[in-house]
Design a protein around this nucleic acid. Structure first.
Lengths: 329, 329
DNA sequence: TATCTTTCCGGGAACGTTACCGGGAAGGTT
DNA sequence: AACCTTCCCGGTAACGTTCCCGGAAAGATA
């Protein structure tokens, strides 16, 4: 149960703790003979150094915290994979937390990560009120936002231009001749608000003035199927549905199919994220590419720089969205 | 940059470090007045206790390591989500590592987790040689295997019966009248071998004696598209393809579509895992349900028990696979 | 008043590791 | 022979926290 420690290695090889430490860390001031003895003793004991003690001493844990809404959404799975691919090379470990779109859980996750003394944090913020971000700011921990923007603009982030996403979607659906377009949005987070602005503004400019009932947020604990079902039951009769992300679009498609609604003949559906599975769906899903995996990679690279050189240099990357037309619209 | 510590809180509230510690941990032997003073000082300083120091003292980090092949595969994303849902309630943190089907990376991941002094490990083993498992065994860390079995049978695990999976698939495809069935398998891991046994044995019993060229492993760094492409180019002419998992089945479908092959008219496709997106594909994917999310939940529950009571009691869960027939076969 | 509880608090050791510093032994230089 | 390097090595403090133990002050009992 209890791991063997440096002192055990030292005793077994007949040297002091300091010497054992130097030998294991390839420091100078150790003769080849004793170094060999120490290494062999460590091997025999199955010695595994404690990152806890190291971290306590050095002030760095070689660990990065990542907070997303849920890893079940392939979008965030890809983001995390991207982050991992960058941090792995630098021997950083990743501590994963999920907020499930709940600001309280987000705050709790950040708090736990700070207790763990992670060297940095990558966060996909859920709250429109930047409480978690403020908390991070106060604690002076290097951090980067990913996928979603925070209201506070000078914060480092890697996102895709949200206003353009909303505008692009509206533009496309208008061009397809739609006049009654439902927007099933995420709730709370600032990116959702920006997409909504871009979406509604573009509709207005095209002379389509829909009431607020045409934008439906999916709140915590709610499922897309419920929200969409309610809309259809109350007879809003949309000809097209724009969803906050592909995952939600897929859920919407499932509900539509269940009800026997034909896509896109009766109702068109589009999403955002360009998940790779989108092209394999029935029908293939029209979406907006947001350079998904680049987000993870980019945010990790920025965080690496911030952790290594502590200049206050700020970096914000706004990726350009691109429409991907397929058969669902 | 540098966090405020317990000593800072103590000084600011005019008490000793011991008293500050007791006050913050709701211990007795602190007067209400001083407790309030300490709490206020901690609040004002934005004090965040260090899990490092706590862990060093207590021997527990309230942290669990999880090693999967890649979180990009929704199967493992669901497993991790299940694990998370259980461990979150007990305030455990999760350290995530990916092996990418590479035994060396798997071993490195386990090693890193041990250095971090995680309280337990959940592993989806990649190697058929149980080196990582042996390493875990030697270090006496509580651990559970998930999703894949190890050759060593007395190890705790939560898996779906692999032999049955292979048999079920073969049975189904035979019933559909197929005689030339390609198996695109994973490589190395023991579960893959068991599925292959079940698959081939069932074919043999049905009088179908295919050569070894009908089972194709996808090796590290290889893509399903390449392997399948090579098979088709060499003119093996299968009428059905059974894939190790849905993710691979989707990749296979993509390649088939790219080549203009009709599914299932020219070639039928089936997978394993019953990912939720399967029913939305074109065509909907025949698959085998393996109680995906139950795996994560179950493994986390077992691990929790092992971490809390250190009896050597061993637990192995073999879930029952279930065929899900859809239009792709 | 003397003794005994009770209540509250502080000192110190320990968890496992690393860096700093000082010192002994061996060998080379004047 | 005296001194100076060079090469190795060990002791010690420190990282931030918790628990154990001892002790002071105040109140209760004789």
């Amino acid at each position: 149960m209890t791991h063997s420690k440096l002192r055990d290695v030292a005793e077994r090889s007949g040297v002091s703790i300091s010497t054992a430490s130097r030998a294991l860390n390839n420091r100078a001031d150790v003769s080849p003979a004793t170094r060999a003895r120490v290494l062999r003793a460590a091997e025999e004991l199955g010695y595994v150094p404690s990152s806890l003690a190291k971290g306590l001493w050095s002030g760095s844990t070689k660990t990065v915290g990542v907070v997303v809404t849920t890893i079940s959404n392939p979008f965030y799975a890809n983001v995390v994979t991207g982050i991992e691919s960058v941090l792995d090379r630098e021997a950083y470990n990743i501590v994963l937390n999920s907020s499930h779109e709940d600001p309280m859980r987000e705050l709790r996750a950040v708090r736990l990560l700070l207790e763990q003394r992670v060297d940095g944090i990558i966060l996909a913020p859920v709250a429109s009120e930047p409480t978690a971000v403020e908390y991070l700011e106060k604690n002076k921990v290097p951090y980067v936002l990913v996928g979603r923007r925070a209201r506070n603009v000078e914060v480092d982030h890697v996102v895709c231009d949200d206003y353009s996403i909303g505008a692009l979607a509206a533009e496309h659906l208008i061009k397809r001749g739609h006049k009654r377009i439902l927007f099933i949005n995420s709730s709370q987070n600032y990116s959702a608000q920006l997409r909504q602005e871009g979406f509604c503004q573009t509709l207005l400019e095209a002379g389509i003035d829909q009431g607020p009932e045409w934008v439906r947020p999916v709140r915590i604990g709610q499922r897309v199927e419920e929200v969409l079902g309610a809309v259809l039951d109350e007879g809003l009769n949309p000809t097209a549905i724009f969803c906050f992300c592909d995952q939600m679009a897929i859920d919407a498609m499932r509900e539509l199919k269940r009800r026997g609604v034909r896509i896109p003949d009766d109702i068109a559906v589009m999403g955002v994220d360009n998940l790779s599975v989108g092209e394999m769906l029935d029908p293939p899903l029209t979406t907006i590419d947001v350079q998904n995996s680049q987000m993870g990679i980019g945010s990790a690279q920025i965080l690496l720089r911030k952790m290594q050189q502590h200049d206050g240099y700020s970096e914000q990357i706004n990726l350009v969205p691109r429409l991907v037309e397929r058969a669902s619209t």
